[in-house]
Simulated assay, not measured.
Amino acid sequence: MSTERATVDGHGTDTDHELGRGVRTGSLLMALAGVAFVAYGVVFLVRTFLGSGFELGVATLNGVTRSELDAIDPAIVHYIDHLHVATAAFIIATGIAITALAWYGVQSGLLWAWATAVVAAVVGLALALPMHYMDLFTHDWVSHLGPVYLATIVFVVGAGLAYRGIRSEPRPADTGESTGT
């Protein structure tokens, strides 16, 4: 993708160059956030099998450790593990989708790729985060939600930069280029 658009005299403008840089920087930040979501999901998955707690930032459920709960009812611990693996899988899958959409689609200036990445992130976060404020067990808020909030901030900044750049680029109909259809 060219970062400069030709003007009537054949030269690109500094503004056009900055807008192209916004798409590149924004898509890179969105992809980086997607990679962070994947990493968070991997940590979630690893803690399911190798961790002493339940998930990142949750050491006990109302003072009951994982091993104590396992001694009381191993089926409950197995069920919690089952849910954690499924949750980790969807976090990882969403992160992969966001990364690919940002890196290949958004960076190419495709508004549909930007919108799909944003919808995927918003749906995942909008459904998952509110429950954390109603939990009846203790969290270490920084380690439990901190990484997700940090990745979300990076994603939002990137999405804003990319959107501004995508919306300012000429469409094929505007430049006389063929759309291939």
Rank of each mutant, 00 (worst) to 15 (best):
V43C: 11
V35Q: 02
R66C: 03
E68T: 13
G53Q: 06
T65R: 06
V42Q: 01
V35N: 00
T65V: 02
L28A: 15
G41Y: 00
G41Q: 02
G51S: 08
G41W: 03
L32N: 05
R66N: 02
G34S: 10
V23R: 03
F37H: 05
G53P: 09
V46E: 01
E55S: 05
A75W: 09
V43L: 06
S67V: 15
D70F: 09
F49D: 00
I76D: 07
E55T: 14
R47I: 04
T65I: 10
V58I: 13
G22W: 00
E68Q: 15
A36D: 07
V35Y: 11
D73V: 13
L29W: 04
P74G: 10
P74I: 03
R21H: 12
S52V: 03
L61Y: 14
Y40S: 09
T60M: 07
R66P: 04
R66Y: 03
A31P: 11
R47H: 06
I72H: 05
V58Y: 06
R21E: 08
P74Q: 08
M30I: 04
F49P: 00
F54Y: 15
F54W: 14
S27W: 04
V38L: 07
L61T: 02
A59V: 13
V58T: 08
G51A: 12
S52T: 11
G26W: 01
G22T: 07
A31E: 05
G57L: 06
N62D: 14
F44S: 08
L61A: 11
V23P: 05
V77T: 15
F49K: 03
S52M: 09
L56I: 15
V38P: 01
T25Y: 08
G41D: 01
F54P: 03
A59R: 09
N62R: 15
R21C: 06
Y40A: 14
R24V: 02
T60A: 10
R47K: 09
D73H: 11
V23C: 03
R24M: 09
G51D: 11
L19E: 01
N62Y: 09
G22F: 03
A71I: 04
R24E: 06
V23T: 10
L50M: 11
A59M: 02
V46F: 00
T48G: 13
T65L: 00
L32A: 12
T60G: 01
F44C: 08
E68A: 14
V64P: 04
I72N: 08
F49S: 01
L45N: 02
A33H: 04
G20A: 10
P74W: 00
V43A: 13
D73Y: 07
